[in-house]
Simulated assay, not measured.
Amino acid sequence: MAGGLKNISAYLRFMYNVPHFKTSAHADVVAFMHAHPFITLCGINEHSQPVATHIPVLIEERNDKLFLLAHVMRKQEHTKAFEANPNVLAIFSGAHSYVSASWYENKQVASTWNYQAVHARGILQFLDDAGLYNVLKKLTANFEQHADSPSLVEKMDEQYMQHNMKAIAAFEIELTDVQHVFKLSQNRDEKSYNNIIETLGTKDADAQSIAATMQSRKSTIFPS
């Protein structure tokens, strides 16, 4: 892909595109993807109808390109669609929360919703049996996060593995386009920004997560 994925700004063409709600740091976008690996994977079937499924993915960076590794069950509608049309969209999403204009200094404006999301387009390629086994090993090791876990693929019964592998297909997606929105009230004045953080901090887990992210980014938005 021309320019590589490190030039994130070159690919901000189709998603909600307001400069306030972007980051120029490639590492921030990739970190968000790693932190939210349970994605919605979308495609188009042979009848031009949209399909989607929800799966965990492993993210790998090779020579300035990003790849997603995952597996799905065989003979599913989405699997057949991916076989017929390898062009897919992976959606990474995180915490989100309503933000009331009553928390702003100027309260006579529209309320909004804060959230973070990444949309990643790419080309899906199914893998052979050896590739499937390798993907299963990588996925399990990544999410178990313990080298001594008895649930690692290499510690499972070989007959059990071979039997279950017949029902699933592994693939990798080479990403060709990555877009993001980190909508976190960056367009508000500092007092309103602080009020939003304080109020979200008293609400549910998603709101508290948004508040924590806003707090962590405050120094870049309002440098002293």
Rank of each mutant, 00 (worst) to 15 (best):
K138T: 13
V118S: 00
E105S: 12
L89W: 08
D129Q: 14
L139N: 01
S102V: 12
L69H: 13
E83G: 10
A84T: 06
W103L: 01
Y98E: 03
V135C: 04
N106D: 11
D64E: 13
K80V: 11
N87V: 10
D64A: 11
F143T: 05
D64Q: 15
L66I: 09
L136H: 00
A101S: 13
H96W: 08
S111G: 04
I123D: 11
H146M: 15
H78A: 06
E83R: 14
L68A: 09
F126K: 00
N87Q: 12
A117M: 08
Q108H: 12
A110Y: 12
L69S: 08
I123S: 11
D128T: 03
V135P: 06
A147Y: 12
K138Q: 13
N134E: 15
Q76I: 11
L66G: 04
V99N: 01
S102D: 15
F67E: 05
Q125T: 15
D129L: 11
F126E: 01
F126N: 00
A110N: 14
I123N: 10
Q145F: 12
E77C: 12
Q125E: 14
L69K: 06
A81G: 01
I123Q: 12
A95T: 03
Q125V: 13
A81R: 04
H119S: 00
V109L: 07
A90L: 03
F143D: 08
D64G: 07
F67H: 01
A90K: 04
Y98L: 06
L66Q: 00
W113D: 04
D128H: 05
Y115M: 07
Y104N: 01
G122L: 05
S100R: 11
F92I: 05
A95E: 09
N106A: 11
S111F: 01
D64F: 12
W113P: 00
S97C: 05
A120C: 09
G131N: 03
V135S: 02
F82M: 08
W113V: 04
N87G: 05
A90P: 00
H119Y: 05
A110W: 11
W103C: 00
K138N: 12
K138C: 09
V135F: 00
Y98K: 03
V109R: 06
A70G: 05
N114H: 08
L136P: 06
H78P: 03
L136A: 07
K138M: 08
K107H: 09
G131H: 04
T140R: 04
H71M: 00
Y133T: 15
W113Q: 03
Y133A: 15
A95M: 03
S93C: 08
V135G: 06
F92N: 02
T112D: 02
L66A: 00
A141C: 13
T140K: 10
D129Y: 08
L89A: 01
S97Q: 08
S100H: 03
S100P: 00
H146T: 13
N63G: 06
I123C: 10
H119K: 07
A70L: 01
A70H: 04
A141N: 07
R74D: 10
H71V: 01
T140P: 10
L66M: 06
A117G: 10
V118L: 05
A120R: 05
K65G: 07
